[in-house]
C-alpha cells in the first residue's frame, strides 16, 4: 500500500436540523479497493457520499481527498460520482452522448472546447456500460436503470481514480446489476480504480467487495470481507442491531 488514502473520513459527523445523520465516522479508501457501504434506509449512506465529494460540509471531523483537506482539494477530475436515481431529469433536451460528455468537462478546464480525444473517452465509457446503441436517444426517454448506466458512463468518461456510486443499481434488473459489478471489478483490476459502492443489498454484492463498511449513522464495522467472514453471522447481527436501534430511536424520538 503506497501513498495517502484516496478518500479518508476522520471522525466525521453531520446533522440535518439538529438530527444526527452521520456520527463520528472514520474510514479510508485506498487505490484499487472495492468498498461496499452498506446500511438500511436512512442510515446516512448518501449523506456520507455527499460529504465525501464536498456537496456537504461536516459539522465536525474532517474529510481528505488524495491526502488533501476537502477545502483545499482542486483535482476534481480524479473523482467520479454517481448520485441516486433521483437526479434523473425527464424532459431535459439532451442526448445520452451529450450528457456523458459532461463527464469530461472537469478535465478540459474553463473556456476550452471538448476535443476528439474527449469524444473517444465518451464513446469508450458508453461502450463499457452497454449504452452505445442509445447514444442519440434523449436522456428523458430512458428507463431508470438505463439512466443509472448513463450516469455511470458519465463518471467513467472522466477517467477517475476514485468512483463513488450511490445506489447505482437502483431500478436495474439482476442481470444488469451483475454486469455492472463485473465491470467495476474489472476496472479495479485493470486501472486500479477505487470504488465506493452504496447499497442495502448486502447478500448479492458481498462477493464483489474487498472491504465492507456497515453504517447506521455510526460505523458498525469496517474491514475486509475475510474479517467479516470469519465471524459467522456477524454482519447479519450487526445489521439487525442497526435496524433495531434505528427503529427504537425513531419510536423514542
Amino acid at each position: 500500500m503506497s501513498g495517502p488514502p484516496l478518500l479518508a473520513f476522520d471522525r466525521v459527523s453531520f446533522r440535518y436540523s439538529g438530527e444526527v445523520v452521520v456520527e463520528e465516522v472514520s474510514l479510508s479508501v485506498q487505490a484499487g479497493e472495492f468498498v461496499g457501504l452498506i446500511g438500511p434506509n436512512g442510515s446516512g449512506k448518501s449523506t456520507l457520499m455527499r460529504l465525501g465529494v464536498g456537496l456537504l460540509r461536516p459539522q465536525s471531523g474532517s474529510v481528505r481527498l488524495f491526502g488533501q483537506p476537502l477545502a483545499r482539494f482542486r483535482e476534481w477530475p480524479r473523482i467520479g460520482y454517481v448520485p441516486q436515481v433521483a437526479a434523473a431529469r425527464p424532459g431535459f433536451p439532451a442526448t445520452v452522448r451529450e450528457v456523458v460528455s459532461t463527464g469530461r468537462v472537469g478535465r478540459r478546464g474553463l473556456f476550452r472546447r471538448l476535443s476528439e480525444s474527449d469524444g473517444h473517452a465518451v464513446d469508450l465509457a458508453l461502450e463499457s456500460v452497454g449504452m452505445m446503441p442509445f447514444r442519440s436517444r434523449l436522456i428523458g426517454e430512458l428507463s431508470g436503470g438505463q439512466h443509472q448506466r448513463v450516469m455511470l458512463a458519465r463518471a467513467l468518461a472522466g477517467e477517475p481514480e476514485l468512483l463513488l456510486l450511490d445506489e447505482p443499481a437502483a431500478g436495474v434488473d439482476a442481470v444488469a446489476k451483475l454486469e455492472l459489478l463485473n465491470l467495476l471489478r474489472r476496472l479495479g483490476q485493470d486501472t486500479n480504480l477505487a470504488v465506493v459502492y452504496v447499497s442495502h443489498d448486502f447478500e448479492t454484492l458481498r462477493p464483489y467487495f474487498n472491504k465492507i463498511a456497515l453504517l447506521n449513522r455510526r460505523l458498525l464495522f469496517f474491514g475486509t470481507r475475510e474479517d467479516l467472514g470469519e465471524q459467522q453471522d456477524v454482519e447479519r447481527q450487526l445489521i439487525e442491531a442497526a435496524l433495531a436501534s434505528d427503529h427504537h430511536e425513531h419510536r423514542g424520538a
Binding site: V53, L55, W76, Y81, P83, A87, T102, G106, L110
Partner: peptide
C-alpha cells in the same frame, strides 16, 4: 459560446457540475 460546456453541465445537474470542479 465560450462557456457552453460548463453552462450545459450546470443546467443538467448543479451537484454534478460542482463535483466536476466547476465554479
Amino acid at each position: 459560446t465560450l462557456l457552453h460546456k460548463e453552462l450545459f453541465t450546470l443546467a443538467y445537474d448543479e451537484d454534478l457540475a460542482r463535483v466536476s470542479g466547476l465554479p
